[in-house]
Amino acid sequence: MSSSASEMRFGMVIDVDKCTGCGACSVACMSENNVGVLPDETDKIRSITWLRVYQIDNGQPYPNTQIAFFPRPCQHCAGSQGHHTPCVSVCPATATDRDPKTGIVSQIPTRCIGCRYCVAACPYHARYFNWYDVPWPEGMDKPLSPFVAPRMRGVVEKCTFCFHRYQRAQNKAFTSGEAMGEMDYQTACTEACPSGAITFGDLNNPEHKVHELKKSPYAFRLLERLHTDTAVYYVSAREWVRRQADNYLSGEKLAKVQAGGGH
């Protein structure tokens, strides 16, 4: 078992071979989670994108060039083999923690003191710092969702696997008396993806699709050798894509690194 076992472990399996890089997941995420917009978003150090879609290519000359896309939400690391969730272990304010029940790494902006230690610790660039207050001018604040509190300057924010949707699904389960099903809790990006590249569910639950999908021989995770034991799996039949998931030496064989044991 991994060092931080949890009852449930929500996670994703993202099919890179289906992703067309259209950015629908990213925008759906921003709209769902009240992510702010700054006047200059070309400054990527200060631009906040909980779910960023990275483009990679195989580096081959014309006409053998190929590109692929990596949608990157927070990886919700558990940490294995004595390693911790990188951000949680460094936070001096306990503004981020890993929920033992769902395996989701939380972020509480109002508790954050803005030291950005977690931003530095995250190997996936999944954490973002609010360098400015978001202006929300002239009606931009109207479509804000009441289910996620807008952030203020000086705090860190990141993907929460739409935990508020889990809460709402749980509310429904409590009042209706019916157990929460797989489809009752889905993240905004999963729902939005027009090519169905993202599958979301409880990795520990054999009834959920992700449980099977993550066992694909083509499944891999990002930077597995750091023993972060992430909850986001990627799938690609293309070897050059899988190779870019970690820092392999040029001659090194792409071996499937089994980190985390339990999963």
Partner: peptide, 10 residues
């Protein structure tokens, strides 16, 4: 929309 501008990369 402003959100679409955010997803343009370098």
């Amino acid at each position: 929309s402003p959100y679409q501008v955010k997803i343009l990369d370098e």
